[in-house]
């Protein structure tokens, strides 16, 4: 596969940064993922949508090395199997975990600093720190404050800013819209698109299928540990099965054409 792509360079859209194939995860004998395969092309936004318990978080945890799995996960040509989680960050995968995972007893500054643990390029760390504060001015106002005192929206900004501090090429986002007001959801999705435009590849896991499908170039529907639908964000947005199950649409009794 690699030799073929080297011999004849393919357009950027088909070069995948992340390849997941046959991913299986068990928790105490219960199978959460039954062989999930998908790919994330470099530079794009890919979304995995699905209901609670479909296995979305398990996928992200497997990629980040937080959960043991069987199957294959390759990132920029590296096989990630057996690589400890803290090293995976160093390779260029950052995750904004479900529920944000902010360290409430640390200050905002410390939360941002902690994410640079694997980095040694001091000068660029300072640049990135400044860049994050420009993007999220609210964080600058609260740098010395314990992160636990931030509002939910601010914490989400901190979680995203913190992920950016590791200078990752792939950003994994686990339900960034969870618990957010509609206005904040809009804002967060705008930021995700902005980060993507600046060159970061995004894998977005969401229950808010409507928003996620709108910004994703590629989308997968996950149901009880299996991928049941795949396509472009636009295609799935128009798919009646998706509409019924995830977009809250009531299908009318219209006659199916043909």
């Amino acid at each position: 596969m690699t030799s073929a792509s080297q011999a004849m360079p393919l357009p950027d859209t088909t070069v995948s940064l992340l390849e997941v194939s046959g991913l299986r995860v068990h928790y105490d004998g219960i199978q959460a993922l039954h062989g999930v395969s998908f790919s994330v092309p470099r530079g794009q936004i890919v979304t995995l949508i699905g209901a609670n318990g479909a296995g979305k978080t398990s996928i992200l945890h497997a990629i980040s090395g937080l959960t043991p799995y069987s199957g294959r996960v390759t990132f920029a040509g590296h096989d990630l199997h057996g690589v400890p989680a803290h090293r995976i960050v160093g390779l260029g995968i950052a995750q904004v975990p479900e529920g944000r995972g902010i360290f409430g007893n640390l200050t905002v500054r410390e939360n941002l600093r902690l994410a640079t643990w694997q980095r040694r390029d001091r000068q660029r760390i300072e640049e990135d720190f400044e860049r994050v504060l420009v993007r999220f001015p609210r964080l600058r106002e609260r740098l010395g404050q314990a992160a636990g005192t931030l509002s939910g929206g601010e914490q989400q900004m901190l979680a995203v800013g913190r992920a950016l501090m590791s200078r990752a090429s792939l950003l994994l986002l686990d339900e960034p819209s969870m618990g957010m007001s509609p206005i904040l959801v809009q804002e967060i999705f705008a930021i995700i698109q902005e980060i993507n435009r600046e060159g970061t590849t995004v894998l977005l896991v969401e229950q808010n299928a409507n928003m996620a499908l709108r910004i994703a170039s590629r989308a997968y529907v996950l149901e009880t540990g299996r991928i049941t639908l795949a396509g472009s964000g636009q295609t799935l947005l128009g798919d009646p099965r998706v509409k019924q199950a995830y977009l809250g649409a009531v299908l009318k009794h219209h006659s199916v054409p043909g």
């Binding site: 980040s64 090395g65 937080l66 400890p84 989680a85 803290h86 090293r87 960050v89 160093g90 950052a94 995750q95 975990p97 995972g101 360290f103 409430g104 007893n105 640390l106 410390e110 600093r113 902690l114 994410a115 640079t116 643990w117 694997q118 980095r119 913190r162 590791s166």
Partner: peptide, 23 residues
């Protein structure tokens, strides 16, 4: 930094590895 990592672990160690910290 080591102290910062210790305090982060004491808050909740689940996601500390995501920061690149060897727990």
């Amino acid at each position: 930094p080591v102290g910062m990592a210790m305090r982060a672990i004491s808050w909740d160690k689940t996601y500390v590895p995501l920061m690149g910290v060897p727990v």
